[in-house]
């Protein structure tokens, strides 16, 4: 990361952490310091341990569909998007349905565009390298922590990067653990491991539930997917279900 001349003169250069400012002037600069990285990293470690649970599950699933430990780890290191990776290995087959995997990955991760857009009030004050570099490490969990930190009035632009590094380390590490474990499991159904994927999705659904407003789009998605799975080949029912729900939401937005 290069120094940004706009903000570096206001930066404490020590790694000792605290960069909150008591006095603010207009317009308020956003810092990008090692202290910010450290604050993000430390805040995110407990959350990253939870993320590791999904990482182990992803590793097991990836090795069951034939990915090597190195391939699973590479995917975690480069894609850094849990739900889409789990869905990708669910779609995996021989031959690999490349188009379905890439399109579904894109659709699932479209939400990151919204999350990234929400960071704009702060990130517009960072250099492009810092802003777009940090976004590589953005996941649901550290984005939420970063928004909380910004809304609390802190202006630590490196918080997303720091918390993202914590997520990345635990995510890649736990993927390797899961993939190694998956290699040594014989018939997955015997130990119930074939159910891990469904269980992961039930758990994800529980976390994504936002109250009654979620009900109608989910029912629409469910109905569309179950019917489409009956009549269409491959896995297109997944995208159809998602888009049916999104379409409904767009239509009923200002009812």
């Amino acid at each position: 990361m290069q120094d940004d001349p706009q903000t570096s003169d206001r930066e404490p250069t020590t790694a000792s952490g605290n960069v909150e400012r008591t006095e603010t002037s207009q317009p308020d600069p956003v810092s990008f310091s090692r202290g910010g990285i450290r604050a993000g990293l430390l805040t995110c470690v407990p959350v990253a341990i939870g993320v590791a649970g999904y990482g182990v599950a992803f590793g097991v699933l990836a090795s069951q569909v034939g990915l090597s430990v190195a391939e699973a780890a590479l995917m975690s290191a480069l894609v850094v998007a849990g739900a889409s990776q789990i869905i990708a290995v669910e779609l995996w087959g021989d031959p690999i349905p490349v188009v379905a995997i890439v399109v579904t990955t894109f659709a699932i991760n479209l939400r990151y565009s919204l999350m990234g857009a929400a960071l704009q009030p702060w990130f517009q004050r960072l250099s492009a390298t810092k802003a777009y570099g940090s976004l590589f490490f953005m996941a649901d969990e550290n984005w939420a922590l970063t928004m909380r930190d910004f809304r609390a009035g802190n202006r630590r632009g490196a918080f997303l990067l720091g918390s993202g590094i914590a997520i990345w380390l635990f995510w890649v590490g736990s993927t390797i653990v899961g993939a190694l474990a998956g290699e040594t499991i014989g018939d997955p159904a015997q130990y119930g491991f074939d159910f891990v994927l469904a269980a992961v999705f039930v758990a994800l659904a529980a976390e994504l539930w936002e109250g009654r407003s979620t009900l109608l789009p989910w029912v629409v998605s469910l109905g569309t997917a179950v019917i489409a799975a009956e009549f269409l080949p491959g896995r297109w029912y997944i995208l159809l279900g998602g888009f049916a729900a999104a379409l409904l939401e767009v239509i009923r937005h200002d009812r």
Partner: peptide, 23 residues
Amino acid sequence: RLEAGLSVLPGAIVIAILGPELA
């Protein structure tokens, strides 16, 4: 409007995978 549509995508996709799988 577009934002609202995109925000339901992750949950809806998870449900679209789960439904046929559990069925």
